[in-house]
Structures are given as structure tokens and as C-alpha cells.
Design a protein around this nucleic acid. Structure first.
Length: 234
DNA sequence: GCGACAG
DNA sequence: ATCTTGTCGC
């Protein structure tokens, strides 16, 4: 299904689609060397249904920016916990298609398989594009875990009925942990190793941190542009 | 019935 | 996610 059709799905249909897609998830070692990595994020206006998507590509492991892309899209699908992909993936897909240089790995702001149906936004986007993806979330959605020690890079496994679905990682001392889980076409260990190499003094790994700055910037620019046009009628 | 609940 | 200043702690 083309993601542009997501906004017409009911929550029940979206869940049924996740159950259908979950059979195609592949969590395995990424053997291809990683030379580039990207971060993707979304920003949106308080009222409108406009989503601002952005992707920032870096050389890895140097982490120098080599490319960016953005897309401004409209959505009707509301935010529903567990169904985030149906709201944000269409916009991210547009930004992805605007990217000339596709990265070897993509980090998304949200869960990978650390999801009730293993279908977090990172897994969903990976299945859609077939790019290896990693989910890096700022808060927990699913799974039980013990608080990791307050020591840089301390880890604590996240489980669902005995199954390992993610890792709570202390990316910075005195800060809440971040929740890492593979999305698609990469395994748990590699996901954590890669994210660790993307931590540069802040709680949020550089890929999604920079993508966050980018989408906020284009959101402000766009709203200022709209304000200027509106003011022509003053 | 009650609590949890990515962005 | 977004709205927002000061303020507590390392």
C-alpha cells in the first residue's frame, strides 16, 4: 500500500495492516559496511494538519553532514499511541523521495520493534523503503525494563513476555535514558552500537537531533511566509 | 474498572 | 508534538 493512502484508514484497519506487515520484519545482522547514516524527524503546527518532515545524512562515523531533504505534507490521521507511523510515515516518505543520497542506515524518532505488534515507526518505514532502520525513542511505549545505572552508556534490556525487544540506554548522565530498538534489516546489538557512536555529548543521538533542528527551522520559515501573505490583506 | 499511552 | 520562564542540579 502506498503510504499516501494511510490517512483514509480507520484505527482498526491500521492495526490490521500492522498485523499483516509484521510477518515481513527481518531482524538480522547488517553485513554491508556503514559509511553513511541519516536521522529523520517531524514537526507540526499547533492547529493545522501540516507536517514538516526532514532527513539529515551524515558521513559515518565522522558524523559530518553531507545531505539534507525536507517535505511539507498534509495529514488527516490523528496521533494515536501505537499508530504513530500512519500519521508520520507519509510525510517522511516524501522527504525520503526528495533525497538524492540514500543512507546506509536511517534513525527514526520513535520505536522500532519495541512495540506491541513490533511495528513501531522505524520498523514500518524500513519495511516500506527496505532501508536498514533503527528506532531511537525519548520515552517508552512498550516493554518492561529496569532503570539503567546513571553511568554513560549503561544499558538495560526491555522485554515483552521474555522476548528482548529493546534496550534502555543512558546516553547522558543525569538524564533519562533513550529507548533503542532495531527497526528492520539490522539487529539489536548493531543498533545499540551505532547509536552509541552517534552520541556527541547530548542525550539525543546526532542524526535525530539534527533532523529535529531542521524540521523546526522549516516549520518556522513556512509559518512566517504564511503570515506575510496573510498580512497583505491588512 | 483502572492505569498506560512513541510523536 | 507544541505552548513557554524561570529554576534546580551537576
Amino acid at each position: 500500500m502506498d503510504p499516501s493512502g494511510y490517512e483514509h484508514l480507520s484505527p482498526a484497519e491500521a492495526i490490521a495492516y500492522q498485523e499483516e506487515l509484521r510477518h515481513k520484519i527481518s531482524i538480522h545482522e547488517l553485513t554491508k559496511p556503514i559509511n553513511t547514516i541519516a536521522g529523520a524527524d517531524i514537526s507540526f503546527d499547533r492547529n493545522s494538519d501540516i507536517l514538516y518532515a526532514g532527513i539529515v545524512v551524515f558521513k559515518y562515523p565522522e558524523m559530518t553532514v553531507i545531505a539534507t531533504s525536507t517535505a511539507i505534507s498534509h495529514t488527516e490521521f490523528p496521533y494515536i499511541s501505537g499508530l504513530l507511523a500512519f500519521r508520520e510515515v507519509p510525510a517522511l516518505f516524501n522527504a525520503w523521495n526528495n533525497l538524492y543520497t540514500k543512507p546506509d542506515v536511517l534513525v527514526l524518532d520513535g520505536q522500532g520493534i519495541a512495540h506491541e505488534r513490533r511495528m513501531g515507526i522505524a520498523t514500518h518505514f524500513g519495511l516500506l523503503t527496505n532501508v536498514p532502520t533503527i528506532g531511537s525513542a525519548k520515552s517508552r511505549l512498550y516493554g518492561k525494563y529496569q532503570e539503567p545505572a546513571d553511568k554513560i552508556f549503561a544499558e538495560s534490556p526491555m522485554y515483552d513476555k521474555g522476548e528482548l525487544i529493546g534496550i534502555a540506554l543512558r546516553s547522558k548522565e543525569n538524564c533519562n535514558p533513550i529507548y533503542i530498538s532495531p527497526g528492520h534489516n539490522i539487529n539489536m546489538q548493531q543498533s545499540v552500537d551505532v547509536i552509541k557512536k552517534c552520541i556527541r555529548g547530548y542525550r539525543i543521538p546526532e542524526p535525530t537531533r539534527q533532523a529535529h533542528f531542521l524540521v523546526n527551522k522549516i516549520r518556522v520559515e513556512n509559518s512566517e511566509k504564511n503570515n506575510r501573505q496573510y498580512n497583505l490583506f491588512d
